[in-house]
């Protein structure tokens, strides 16, 4: 359930966004999910890819500011109550969600959900106890 995510600093969204996507594609790294958090001044692009370590390396080599961060990845579709169910469980357990994003696979229509929390191990344990499962990335960008 704990998964490595790439966090990328973006100053000029459009240009850098393309550079990130191109670099990953050139190195045969598949993007499974992504989200962009931006302010008026800068943005953080968050990516789930199939080879996070390699992804970090190839991006850093291009002079892109990138960091590996831990997040929780769950299957939203089959889970009890779907995406909202997971959030409710975490809220009731007093775990603060910093951000989340969901992603739907084009073909299968399956959804995965990425959640950032303060106490990752505890959150993972709680979610498991409530029947949430590992994200199944089949069909996501592969």
């Amino acid at each position: 359930m704990i998964t490595k995510q790439l966090s990328v600093f973006l100053e000029n969204e459009t240009a850098r966004l393309c550079a990130v996507a191109d670099t990953l594609a050139k190195n045969h790294i598949n993007i499974r999910a992504l989200s962009l958090a931006d302010t008026a001044e800068f943005g953080i692009l968050r990516l789930i890819v199939d080879q996070p370590e390699k992804g970090r390396e190839v991006l850093a080599n291009e002079g892109i500011v990138v960091r590996l961060t831990n997040v929780l990845a769950l299957s939203a579709q089959d889970a009890p109550g779907g995406a909202l169910g997971a959030l409710r469980v975490l809220a009731e357990s007093g775990i603060n969600v910093e951000y989340m994003y969901a992603y739907v696979a084009k073909v299968s229509g399956k959804a995965i959900m990425i959640v950032q929390v303060e106490d990752m191990e505890v959150a993972e344990e709680i979610l498991r106890r409530h029947g949430f499962d590992e994200a199944d990335f089949a069909g996501f960008g592969d």
């Binding site: 600093f9 100053e11 800068f42 953080i44 500011v65 960091r67 950032q116």
Partner: peptide, 18 residues
């Protein structure tokens, strides 16, 4: 210039730095 040592996944942390 932003650098890796300086960057965080947290929007609020970067805003606070700025």
């Amino acid at each position: 210039e932003m650098s890796e040592a300086f960057f965080s996944d947290n929007v609020r942390a970067i805003e606070a730095l700025e």
